[in-house]
Simulated scan of single mutants.
Amino acid sequence: MTTALITGATAGIGAAFARRLAGDGHNIVLVARDEGRLRDQAAELHDAHGVEVEVISADLATDEGIAAVEERLAERRHPVDLLVNNAGFGNKGEFLQVALEDELRMLKVHCEAVLRLTSAAVRGMRDRGRGGVVNVASVAAFVPRGTYGASKAWVVQFTQGVAHDLAGSGVRLMALCPGFVRTEFHQRAGMGTDNIPGWMWLDAGKLVEAAMKDLARGRTVSIPDPRYKALMGVAKLAPRGLLGGATSRTGRKYGPK
């Protein structure tokens, strides 16, 4: 039986991945900070799907937290076949309104953790000739959205680069770029969402379903909704200055997740 490891697993997109993959018969490794929520979620998944569920309580904004997950990914006796790097957060406020330490913490989680965990996972996957990594980015990667958008743009470029380097190895990598998803993301950051039109919101379960299909197709970038695919097509043609104004009206601080 294969095993999937998911970071940021207790809510939103991460929890949706856990439910989908457990339902498909994968054993699951859940990673998040809240050990109580992890254990409750593990029991629910085990009872509902009869799979084995491990938990790792780790803060990926710390070296110790990243190292704990790296150690699990490096295990050869119980290998991880699919890694979902989903952990992430947003900062409320425009540049210079957000404390520098919070911006650096974001880069630690969105960039360094993704780099280190992907590296730890794909070494064994390459040796076995199979495996997959889904790095959750955002459509914010394609428009001006400050540190959040810049970190997600890094995730997209990094994932595409590694996918190119590992082509033919049996290891698939994909950057998942959702728009606004109904999760705890905005609430945790203290962000209001009243200015976001209803049609822009996505369902986490449907998002994961589309993402898994794109991974199976071998895509390296997934924008899993026709509405956002159309918006990103327009964004490629629009002047950068116009995009900057548009993103400020929807709220830089309300970056999609």
Rank of each mutant, 00 (worst) to 15 (best):
E209R: 10
A16K: 05
S119M: 15
D24Q: 14
A4D: 05
A18L: 09
R128W: 09
D34M: 09
Y254P: 05
A42T: 07
G93L: 12
V208C: 01
V98W: 06
L215G: 01
L202A: 07
L117S: 01
E103N: 04
G198N: 07
A175Y: 00
F180L: 07
V208N: 01
L30K: 04
E184L: 08
H49Y: 13
A216S: 08
H164Y: 13
F158W: 07
K92H: 11
L231D: 04
G124K: 08
R172G: 06
V122H: 02
G192E: 15
G36F: 15
L215A: 04
K236F: 12
T183A: 05
A210C: 05
T3H: 06
I13K: 05
R19S: 11
G65S: 06
R217V: 08
R77S: 13
R126W: 08
V29D: 04
D127S: 11
G131M: 08
T2F: 15
N195P: 01
A32E: 04
A189T: 01
H164K: 13
Q97L: 14
E71H: 12
A15C: 09
K229V: 14
E44C: 12
D24C: 13
K236P: 00
M106V: 08
R33G: 02
R249A: 15
G233W: 12
S151F: 11
A210I: 11
A99I: 10
I223C: 03
G23V: 14
V234P: 00
E101W: 15
V51A: 07
A121C: 02
E52L: 15
V162Y: 01
M212K: 10
K108A: 15
E44L: 14
H78F: 15
M232V: 05
V162D: 00
V109N: 03
D59Y: 11
L176I: 03
S57I: 14
D165L: 14
L73K: 02
L207F: 06
D40H: 15
A163V: 02
L237R: 07
W154K: 07
V171C: 01
V221F: 03
W199T: 14
A22G: 02
V171E: 00
H110P: 00
A87N: 01
G179S: 04
V234S: 06
L173T: 00
A121R: 03
G244N: 10
F142P: 00
R128F: 09
D34H: 10
I66R: 03
A230H: 06
V80E: 04
A42E: 07
Q187W: 15
L115D: 06
V155H: 01
A15Q: 12
I6F: 08
R123L: 13
R77W: 14
R116Y: 10
A113T: 04
A211P: 00
